[in-house]
């Protein structure tokens, strides 16, 4: 019997009596991070890494039992020992390590290796079995250094300002937006955030992450001059009436998918910036290698190519069917409310 397996509610650990990132309602849920495909409402009790607490409270409300744990601390749950380790994905994101009679499994949740001042960096954890995401599991997905991406975002913002336009970038309210904020150059102009993002900024600031000064747009008033401003908005705000209040706007999407020209063009945005909070192909391989795991279970994303690649490298690799979603371009509708 494997230490973890997928049942109808999610990734189930029988020896520990808990689920990791369940999509059904379960008695005990261990949560890797606050994105909506990983942290869902409806379970009786939750355990997450300490910096994730405020995020889960904001997203899931307060009417449930939530226990937190410091990164690296060991906790006995049922017959197993669990610990949470930074995944570098968003604030509070964790890989969950599960140990049972000397056998170690690590569930990555979502992760990235690239630098991000808004969360603790990814920490490789040795294990026998590694459950990895594979959102960008093809070698065409390779990220440029974040500084390079931010330079082009700032250049674009500056050019828009000089043409009297407002700049608007679209990114996830949790994680992507705050990471983007740290890369913006506040010298260029004022920074505004959509309400859904400003609420999350608040959580980040309360958690001690330093972000540049931002103002919530609220319901933008007619006649206000937005020329030269930068507005950060969730992808769901695209094409909304809210968006049309800002006068002449140049739009940019922040996503790993923007690496592909066809996808970039289909977004009908003025610009696509390749910025992802998931690992790129070299990142996936590096992370998997660093675990020393012989067995790799691959979830959401380009599972088949990564499984085949790893198998050809002599690993015992298999696909694992889950309901995690990776990086979507237009989801997270709930964030737009």
């Amino acid at each position: 019997m494997p230490l973890l397996r997928v049942d109808q509610n999610g990734l189930w650990c029988e020896a520990g009596g808990f689920h990791i990132d369940p999509w059904g309602s379960v008695p005990k849920a261990l949560i890797t991070h606050g994105h909506s495909d990983h942290a869902r409402i409806g379970s009786s009790s939750y355990l997450c890494a300490a910096p994730s607490e405020r995020i889960l409270r904001l997203r899931l409300g307060s009417e449930f039992q939530l226990q937190t744990i410091t990164y690296g601390d060991r906790l006995t749950v049922g017959d197993v020992i669990v610990s949470f380790h930074p995944a570098g994905h968003v604030l509070g994101s964790a890989q969950i390590r599960v140990e049972h009679r000397g056998e170690v499994w690590v569930v990555s949740g979502d992760y990235k290796l690239a630098a991000d001042p808004t969360c603790a960096p990814f920490e490789p954890v040795r294990c026998n079995t590694f459950v990895t995401e594979s959102t960008f599991g093809l070698p065409i997905y390779r990220w440029h250094a974040p500084e390079t991406v931010f330079t082009s975002i700032n250049d674009w913002w500056r050019a828009n300002r000089d043409h009297g336009r407002c700049s608007m970038i679209f990114g996830y309210p949790l994680g992507k937006s705050q990471r983007a904020l740290t890369g913006l150059d506040p010298e260029i102009g004022p920074i505004y955030c959509h309400g859904a993002i400003e609420r999350m900024n608040q959580v980040y600031r309360e958690s001690g992450v330093s972000l540049p000064a931002t103002t919530a747009t609220g319901e933008p008033k007619r006649g206000q001059n937005w020329a030269g401003a930068m507005v950060v908005a969730p992808p769901s705000a695209q094409g909304s009436t809210w968006m049309r209040r800002f006068g002449e706007v140049s739009t940019g999407m922040l996503s790993g998918w923007m690496r592909i020209r066809g996808t970039r063009r289909r977004q009908s945005m003025d610009r696509g910036f390749v910025l992802s909070d998931h690992a790129d192909w070299p990142g996936l391989l590096q992370a998997i290698g660093a675990t020393g795991a012989d067995c790799v279970l691959v979830t959401h994303g380009y599972r088949a190519p990564l499984v085949r690649w790893l198998s050809e490298q002599g690993k015992d690799a298999r696909a694992l069917e889950t309901r995690f979603e990776g990086e979507a371009l237009e989801n997270e509708a709930e964030a737009a409310e």
């Binding site: 070698p139 390779r142 020209r261 066809g262 190519p305 690649w309």
Partner: peptide, 25 residues
């Protein structure tokens, strides 16, 4: 690129354009 042929095929179908797939790989 030092990759097997099959994964080039996967990349090409994800990108949909040969010149671009090569450029990215």
């Amino acid at each position: 690129a030092g990759i097997p042929e099959w994964i080039f095929g996967e990349c090409y179908s994800a990108v949909g354009d040969l010149a671009e797939a090569i450029a990215l790989l």
